[in-house]
Amino acid sequence: MSAQHEKLRMMLTAALFAAIIGIFAQITIPLPLVPITGQTLAIGLAATILGSRYGALSALLYMLIGAVGLPVFSGMSGGMGIIFGPTGGYIISFILSAFFIGWYIEKTKPAVFHAFIANIIGMIINLAFGTVWLKIFAQLGWAEAFAAGFAPFIIGGIIKALLASWIGIQVRKRLTSARLLPQSVRNHTA
């Protein structure tokens, strides 16, 4: 397959993962300021399977689709008001988190252990960035922001990191054996 076809296929796959992130965003457990959602699981899966470049692209597409008003954010919401609201930092940080997760796996070895470490660090990036954003936009103190935007998500984040790592590596191996990932991603697969 030509490099151009491979690139197009991966761009379409990134768009598919942007849709998957939007679907997982609707899995919600409401909390007072920031709900628990399936978005971070989907981000971890995208980055673990697609790598840094296309994982981050899927997160960027998800953010842009929601920013223009399509209801892909949690609670079937969308629009720039969400991006520039108290929870917008979490959404923006998905891009950084996905890039880091994919990059870490590319630099180490695509195994569940390395994927888990990458997803845990990705979770910390997401929670830290989101909490700082929440503090600023909701005008909270540091203790309040940590209590509302970081602490409630640690245990769920660890579980989601484990799921994203295990499922993501299994899917990545299968896509690699079927030669459905580009050579650049396949070269980083055990």
Rank of each mutant, 00 (worst) to 15 (best):
Thr48Phe: 04
Ala56Ser: 15
Tyr54Arg: 11
Gly66Ala: 05
Ile91Lys: 14
Ile23Gly: 15
Ala161Asp: 09
Gly89Val: 09
Val132Trp: 05
Ile121Trp: 01
Phe129Met: 13
Ser52Gly: 15
Ile155Glu: 01
Phe24Trp: 03
Phe113Glu: 12
Ile159Trp: 02
Gly149Ile: 06
Ile169Pro: 00
Lys107Asp: 03
Lys173Arg: 14
Ala25Ser: 14
Asn119Tyr: 06
Gly141Met: 08
Ile95Ser: 10
Val34Pro: 04
Ser2Ala: 10
His188Leu: 14
Gly156Cys: 05
Ile91Val: 13
Ser165Asp: 07
Ser52His: 09
Leu140Trp: 03
Leu8Trp: 02
His188Thr: 10
Gln39Thr: 14
Gly149Val: 01
Ala18Lys: 13
Gly51Arg: 08
Ile83Gln: 06
Lys160Glu: 04
Ala56Gly: 12
Leu96Phe: 15
Arg172Gly: 04
Tyr54Ser: 01
Ala148Gly: 07
Ala178Glu: 14
Ser165Phe: 04
Gln183Trp: 01
Phe113Tyr: 12
Lys107Glu: 14
Ala19Gly: 11
Tyr90Arg: 08
Gly141His: 11
Arg186Ala: 03
Gln4Tyr: 01
Ala19Lys: 03
Met1His: 12
Phe17Trp: 03
Thr13Ser: 08
Leu64Val: 11
Tyr54Gln: 01
Leu163Trp: 07
Val34Asn: 11
Thr37Ala: 05
Arg186Gly: 04
Thr40Tyr: 02
Ala59Thr: 08
Pro152Ser: 01
Thr189Pro: 02
Phe24Pro: 00
Ala161Trp: 00
Ala56Trp: 05
Gly69Ile: 07
Ala147Met: 15
Val34Cys: 04
Ile29Gln: 08
Asn126Cys: 02
Phe100Trp: 09
Leu61Glu: 11
Thr176Gln: 14
Gln139Asp: 14
Ile121His: 01
Ile82Phe: 06
Ala15Val: 12
Leu175Ile: 00
Arg9Leu: 06
Ser74His: 07
Met76Asp: 00
Tyr104Gly: 11
Met63Gln: 09
Thr108Pro: 14
Leu64Ile: 09
Phe146Cys: 00
Ser74Glu: 05
His5Asn: 15
Leu127Cys: 04
Leu127His: 05
Lys173Met: 12
Ala111Asn: 15
Gly81Thr: 09
Ala15Thr: 14
Leu41Ile: 13
Ala46His: 03
Ala46Thr: 05
Leu60Pro: 12
Gln26Lys: 14
Ala138Cys: 00
Arg172Pro: 00
Ser93Tyr: 09
Ala190Tyr: 03
Phe153Thr: 07
Ile95Asn: 06
Thr13Leu: 11
Arg174Thr: 05
Ala190Arg: 09
Met10Gly: 02
Val112Asn: 05
Gly44Thr: 12
Ile167Val: 13
His188Asn: 10
Ala14Tyr: 01
Leu8Thr: 11
Ile43Glu: 08
Pro152Tyr: 01
Arg174Cys: 10
Ser58Arg: 03
Thr108Met: 15
Ala46Glu: 07
Thr37Asn: 13
Leu12Ser: 10
Leu180Thr: 03
Ala190Val: 08
Ile92Gly: 13
Ile36Arg: 02
Ala118Glu: 12
Leu41Tyr: 01
Phe94Ile: 06
His188Cys: 11
Gly89Pro: 01
Gln39Pro: 02
Gln26Thr: 06
Val72Asn: 03
Phe116Trp: 14
Phe113Ile: 13
Leu41Met: 04
Gly168Thr: 06
Ile155Trp: 05
Met11Asn: 11
Ala151Tyr: 11
Asn126Phe: 02
Leu96Cys: 04
Gly44Asn: 08
Ala67Trp: 06
Ala56Leu: 10
Phe99Trp: 15
Ala128Phe: 12
Thr176His: 05
Thr189Lys: 10
His188Gln: 15
Ala3Asn: 11
